[in-house]
Design a protein around this nucleic acid. Sequence first.
DNA 1: CTGCTACATCGTATTTCGACGATAAACGGA
DNA 2: TCCGTTTATCGTCGAAATACGATGTAGCAG
Lengths: 126, 126
Amino acid sequence: MLDRDPHHDPRAIDAEAIAAVAKALAHPARVKIIAFLLSRPGCIGGDIVGEVGLAQSTVSEHLRILKASGLVVGTIERPRICYSLNPKVLAPLHALIGMVEARDASQADAPCCYTPQGCIPKENNQ
Amino acid sequence: MLDRDPHHDPRAIDAEAIAAVAKALAHPARVKIIAFLLSRPGCIGGDIVGEVGLAQSTVSEHLRILKASGLVVGTIERPRICYSLNPKVLAPLHALIGMVEARDASQADAPCCYTPQGCIPKENNQ
DNA sequence: CTGCTACATCGTATTTCGACGATAAACGGA
DNA sequence: TCCGTTTATCGTCGAAATACGATGTAGCAG
């Protein structure tokens, strides 16, 4: 589901799944971890702690959240644990973003607002 | 910045900006609001309250968060306020997702994990 | 002026998050 | 076996998010 052409069915949106992935990305430290995983050719162990500048237990907690969301997977390489990315869970969020950006274009020629009373032309901005 | 070809520079990642947008999307009610805005040809007023099934004050608070993030803008159409989407702020998040998904392909031929001790072949999964 | 409608804000209770130090667990090596 | 390394978990604290009812505000209709 949502595999191909995910840009045209707003009813297929799984709000819970999207919110869950977004929540995993909703903290700068976790985004930094993702960015750090992107910056390396393979996986990383505890270098992450030095990178984000937080205590080891705090980083471990962020990694737990990322693993719980499925965005990051940990492969055991004793005594280290090797973290890597799993882009699959990003699909629902990516689909929503694609729909919003796609609609922006088709929205350009919509001259008015829909209301129960009909179509009202645009005026002020807040 | 990040205008074109945002798939190849992990150092350009603005963790704060990405986390801020993700935080706006990190609640099912807010995702539902975005989805509802997608499902209408123009803008909407208070129909949102009936859609998400929460109290009016709670929905108003979620709309405040969405407006604060820039994802949603409100146009005054007295007595209503007409909400619509602003896809621009999604760009940094979209870029990060693109980088993760793009890296997945190039990652397929990485046979090992990077560590300070060198390259260790993959073994177990957790 | 008096309501009515649509939305925002306030006050508040409950829950969740984020950070840390301390400690536990798992393993490899001396 | 004891030790060092690496990661996970626990306990706790303050801060922030969430939800609600009550109230405030701004225009319109009568």
